[in-house]
Write a protein that binds this DNA or RNA. Structure first.
Length: 147
DNA sequence: CGGTTTTGACCCGCGC
DNA sequence: GCGCGGGTCAAAACCG
């Protein structure tokens, strides 16, 4: 992580935490993702991104699944996971060249708790004001599931 | 009319 | 080799 640890630049999505030192944010620096090349198929999709895939998960108490963090997301899938009655939604940043993914999941035990997982780093500025999301940050809790 | 959501199919890795 | 679990695609519906 270089460049956005002081909040001077945009973190994956937590730029607004610069003044909120209350929450300790833990980034999960992703490992290098191996190149995935689908061969022999009608669609030859190659993911040759060298790869730093940052993953970050947290949970909030919200009654709505969609947390507006200032970016524009396009939903590309929804799948139900085992051990969870509620489905998990997959979103993607619609900015060109910005392949940030985000996944929202709701706990089956606590229906009010929504687990949001970000994956990747945004390479562009936020369009909307983050005041809304900023308020969410104050109540959000870091999901310490990584080891 | 354009972008986004929806929803089932497809695909892939892993365990048995 | 097959089945399961999870992730993604893509075409049509939908909404401003």
């Amino acid at each position: 992580m270089e460049g956005y640890q002081n909040g001077s630049s945009y973190a994956p999505f937590l730029s607004l935490t610069s003044h909120q030192n209350h929450s300790k944010l833990e980034f999960h620096q992703g490992e290098e993702e191996a190149s995935k090349v689908r061969e022999g198929s009608s669609r030859s999709l190659e993911v040759k991104k060298k790869g730093k895939k940052q993953r970050f998960a947290f949970q909030t108490r919200s009654q709505v699944d969609i947390l507006d963090d200032g970016y524009r997301w396009r939903k590309y899938g929804q799948k139900a996971v085992k051990n969870n009655t509620f489905p998990r939604s997959y979103y993607r940043c619609t900015y060109a060249g910005c392949n940030v993914k985000k996944q929202v999941q709701r706990l089956t035990s606590d229906q009010e708790v929504v687990v949001t997982t970000y994956e990747g780093v945004h390479s562009h500025a936020i369009e909307k004001s983050t005041e809304n999301f900023e308020h969410i940050l104050t109540q959000m809790q870091i999901y310490s599931s990584f080891n």
